[in-house]
Each structure stands twice: as C-alpha cells, then as structure tokens.
Amino acid sequence: MKILVCISNVPDTTSKINFTADQSAFDTTGVQFVINPNDEFGLTRAMWMKEKQGATVHVATVGGPGVEPTMRKALAIGADEAIRIDAEPTDGLFVARQLAEVVKNGSYELVIAGRESIDYNGGMVPGMLAAMLDMNFVNTCIGLEIEGTSAKAVREIDGGKETIETSLPLVIGGQKGLVEESDLRIPNMRGIMMARQKKLNVVPPVDMGAGTKDVSFEKPPAKGPVKLVDPSQVGQLVELLHKEAKVL
C-alpha cells in the first residue's frame, strides 16, 4: 500500500497572531512553525501501517523552501520520502489541485490529510482533493483500519460517532483519535540522522487558479474586563446572566 500524508506547515499553537501593518497578511515575525496537529495524528497512524502492514509512506507539502524543516521533521518521524510542491499555498482549491497531481503521478491508494489546518481553518483541502480524484472520502476521521482494499473508518459526528465502510482509493481528513495523544511520535536522534539521507523531492506546481483570496485581516476587538461575582453571592451571577447578558 502506498500512502501519502499531506502536511501543512502552521504556526505553533501558542503563537500570538499579528498581521502586517497594512493588514494584508499574517505577520510571521518570531513565529515557530510546526506540523499541523491534525496531520501529526495522521502521520503517526501511517507509521503504524508502515510497521505492521508494510506500507510505504510519503509526505507532501505545498510551500516554499521555508517549509523544509517541517518536512524534515516528518521524515525524522519515519516517512520514507518527502515531496515539496514549490509554490505558495494560496487557497484550498490551488493546494488540492497540486496534491491531486502528486497523488495521480505517484499512484497513492490512501491519502491522509487533516480535518483542518489550524491557521486558516479552511477544512477544505482533503474534500476538494477527493472530489478532484474521484476518490472516497471520510472527514473528521477518528479511527481507520485498512485490510486489502477495504477500509473501516470511524468519523466524529455532532453528538457522537459513525462507523463507515468504504474502499481504497480513499482520502481521510483526520484528527486526534486516529491515534491517541500519548502515541504521537517525537523524532529521536536516530530518526533525525536518517532523515538527512532521505529524499526530499521538489516539484514545480501545475496551473490552477484560486477560488478565494484573503484581501485583508484584522484582530478581534480588545475585550473588556471580567465582571467578578463574590463566591458567597452566586445568585448574582444568575441575575446577571438573565438580565444583563440575556442568555438565561
């Protein structure tokens, strides 16, 4: 089985978010970039399939040279090869189209992406990719077992979960649950050394327009101070929620 794990390169979850002075872009000054958390779960699930089922695992990212440290980290965790599509990821359609090309050319049967990137929160790429490739798709996936060409997946739904049967070729929009937090792989010294020898292929993008463009950004307005209620006056909180906030 050939697996492609799609990795987006996102600001670390503790990052303060600022925009450039003209409000036209995200200000990356001082920001640490990491593997998108949803993709980390997918990558670890793929490692399990590599070890237990003999799968080959490649990772792909659409991005400039600046994303390579994140890709090296994925290689250090255990991916066999990496592919960087050399273009700025302008929007979901553009990124999906680039990844579709990689999937077609590499004959991948299983594509593991994340439910959403934690930066632009698009949640678009995996579904668009599945549509472009005419593949089956399971989103918000929290469990995945592959046997031969059959797949059993569990997806999170509002208020519970659903078990789904489907078949390869398949695209997954994964998240925590694909593996547990405690099972996440952290690159060790040996992995990091080995990653240096692994292939990181750079390919040019294919032609594709974007469907959306972020023209400007702004931060949410500053919040007023909290209204404190004395612990001996809990009834006041009920009053405030009823009369002032009007939520009861």
């Binding site: 600001p11 978010i17 925009f19 995200f26 934690i118 930066d119 632009y120 929160n121 327009g209 974007a210 469907g211 959306t212 463009k213 972020d214 023209v215 400007s216 950004f217 702004e218 931060k219 949410p220």
Partner: peptide, 13 residues
Amino acid sequence: VFSNKGFAHTELS
C-alpha cells in the same frame, strides 16, 4: 481565521 484569533476578509471569485 487562526482559531478565532483573527478575522479575514475573503474574496470569492
């Protein structure tokens, strides 16, 4: 965007 840490004005073509 950015998990409620910002807003984007997005043009759809």
